[in-house]
């Protein structure tokens, strides 16, 4: 057990932070929603009911989609784009998909390489891009989940104000949907761009997200 905890401490740590945050968010969101209901002379709802409400779902999914979009772009962009001096960038002569030897595929696959690293063809290509594909799929799925939950919330609001409900595809063209999506995207793009440039001059001893403290400022990708 101790060994398991040590070998998985990074994902356990973030898993606990995730659970604690989502529980706290749901409680705060529930209280906030009930205050709103009371202000409109509506009856408050139970905590359990709030957990499967579109209000809570939209708040969750709106943030999920932007995080996975961020990873999707970061994984894709760092294949081809470089930043001199950044720890987030590959070396300046390594842009692109790299050689089979560097990627240890085909005849350069080792004893314990994944089986699909050795093979050729469609399944190999699928596996060779699986991280990007899965992040992209989760982005699209959470963006879809955001759209249907936010749509439900939007229509409940419309009816509250004696306006007519809209269809899902109509909702996708509303400023409400795009404002919710874009407000999250802008912050993600700023954050990853900041990581790319701040690691040129700034250091954190011991972190693989940073270059070694003594690395020159113009040294690129020295711990990636």
């Amino acid at each position: 057990v101790r060994r398991f905890l040590r070998e998985n401490s990074l994902s356990i740590f973030f898993g606990i932070l995730f659970l604690a945050s989502i529980v706290a968010q749901s409680i705060a969101g529930w209280k906030d929603f009930n205050e709103e209901l009371l202000a409109h002379d509506d009856a408050p709802i139970t905590y359990g009911r709030y957990l499967y409400s579109s209000e809570f779902g939209a708040a969750l999914m709106e943030n999920w989609q932007s995080e996975f979009l961020q990873f999707f772009f970061y994984i894709a962009a760092t294949i081809w784009f470089l930043q001199k001096g950044s720890n987030e960038s590959k070396k300046l002569n390594e842009a692109g998909l790299e050689s089979d030897e560097q990627q240890r595929v085909g005849k350069w696959a080792g004893q314990s390489s994944p089986k699909l690293a050795r093979s050729k063809g469609f399944l190999h290509s699928l596996y060779a891009n699986s991280l990007l594909l899965v992040m992209g799929t989760i982005f699209l799925a959470s963006w879809f989940a955001e759209s249907v939950t936010a749509w439900t919330v939007f229509n409940a609001d419309q009816l509250d104000h004696e306006e007519s409900a809209v269809g899902w595809s109509k909702y996708l063209t509303t400023p409400d949907f795009w404002e919710k999506s874009l407000q999250n995207w802008q912050s993600e793009f700023l954050a990853v761009g900041t990581m790319a440039v701040f690691t040129i001059y700034l250091r954190q001893r011991g972190s693989p997200e940073s270059k070694p403290v003594g690395a020159p400022h113009d040294e690129t990708g020295s711990s990636g």
Partner: peptide, 30 residues
């Protein structure tokens, strides 16, 4: 070699459950 799949599977299950559950919540207008 210690298994490395436990946390991977756990994260996948949490994400897929969340996506499916809240897609359904939205579609069913809950």
């Amino acid at each position: 070699m210690a298994p490395v799949r436990t946390m991977f599977v756990l994260y996948v299950v949490v994400i897929v459950t969340g996506l499916v559950f809240y897609s359904a919540v939205g579609i069913l207008h809950k």
